[in-house]
Design a protein around this nucleic acid. Sequence first.
DNA 1: CGTGAACTTGATATGCCTCAATACGAGTGG
DNA 2: CCACTCGTATTGAGGCATATCAAGTTCACG
Lengths: 258, 258
Amino acid sequence: MSAKPLPRNILNGPPGSAVLSELVDAHRRERPAGTIEKLEGDTCSEVYFVVSGWLAASKSLADGQRQVVDIVLNGGMLDPGSAGSDKSAVEIEFLTRTVFVPLPRENWLRLLSVDPGLRRALLGERRAIMARMFERMLRLGKGSAENRIAYALCELCLRSSDAGLRERRAYPIPLNQPLLGDFCGLSSVHVCRTLRRLEIDGIVERTNRMDIVIHKLDALAEIAQIDPEALRGQIVSAAAPELFTACGSREPPRRAAS
Amino acid sequence: MSAKPLPRNILNGPPGSAVLSELVDAHRRERPAGTIEKLEGDTCSEVYFVVSGWLAASKSLADGQRQVVDIVLNGGMLDPGSAGSDKSAVEIEFLTRTVFVPLPRENWLRLLSVDPGLRRALLGERRAIMARMFERMLRLGKGSAENRIAYALCELCLRSSDAGLRERRAYPIPLNQPLLGDFCGLSSVHVCRTLRRLEIDGIVERTNRMDIVIHKLDALAEIAQIDPEALRGQIVSAAAPELFTACGSREPPRRAAS
DNA sequence: CGTGAACTTGATATGCCTCAATACGAGTGG
DNA sequence: CCACTCGTATTGAGGCATATCAAGTTCACG
């Protein structure tokens, strides 16, 4: 699966294919870690495709409290727009050096109009996005701190690696504790305590600040209240990578300081 | 806007239109309030369109704690599927007597393939869904109980009426307090206390259990941390009604006991 | 008139936040 | 090489918001 030979779907699709690679080339961008690409309310008429890197979409209350509403990884997409206007509903920040393609809405619609496979892939990607958002809302509303953190670790590990959830394997997660707190709806202090407890209990281990090694997958899944196998199928879109393999060479996700 | 003369978009669209009305007729369903249409994990290969009524999509933790992840009203749609499998990611329950159209995925994809206007409308609807989900996640993660309740009232009032947020006008909300709690991530007891406080402060009034009358819109918007005008544009899809006006006569939303 | 579900209100428990102080690690400049 | 500094992580103490438990009331419905 990691040795996928050639881009499919778009580049090799029947009509409009030539257009695509030009579009992608024309819009391809790269940003260093920590860049804030857009603020809430900024004008935005594009749909974002992440070629490589991590991106966080967040919203804030008046007092500055921030909630990360989604994290987008290699092969993922984000539509920051809201219903009526051309205003972005979220703030967009890159957590790592990131290559991405902001595709104007009209171009995106045109691509969809010519490629049935793309429409189908989009449906799958959309379902994956919604499914993981649902899981997170459930935990934001009803889960304990342990449950939220454990779930976040599982989700990010699952999504960031083809290998899935495995014991004794280090997954880099390019979030510091305040950011992880904003993702889980917790204060950074409580994130620290909760991570610490998981570590003391021998369930996970951290190296280099935020490389996660799972030692007791059963226990972690129990706390996160997930079935590792099933969750993967629900929140990771099988079709997604094909959505725009065309967009560029597949670089591995790279961690970076924020 | 309420006196829209004729269905547009699909029924009158160029090709495939005849197919649509047949599809809709064939799949149209009606259920009484309180019906549970699907459970988490049930097989589901359809996309749901709500013609009239209210529907709640929820998920639960092992201990039975439930979180309502979205509420769908007249003119709204819901795709319960998850990425990989044909399993529903959510439980679906009707809050009122509801007319809806569960359209098999393949039919839905085919419709999308023939109607550019439909694709565009879907983009708008999708953005509205995401925008309101983002708003709710922000409040689930970082908002106080007052903020969550006030926001929920504003969102549901905005979405359930063309009139938007107005003072001295009764909005029926067909949720009891336990359900509102599941929606806001609060216990029913605390929902009660919080609503009571809003009432004592003269900000809202309740009649018939759950008909909401706003008395101080400014204060409510302040607590909810919203701009009523702007929010409407963000979370209500202008195009959505056209998505499937074809599906049936437009009945007003009717409240019912759960 | 009885029954059950929802609502209300009070009392208590607790999980998480906030404030505060310290430790650590990386980068910087002397 | 060391001192400095700044951001992040860690740990403790205390407070507050919300959950939980419990009891009583109202209301819809049979």
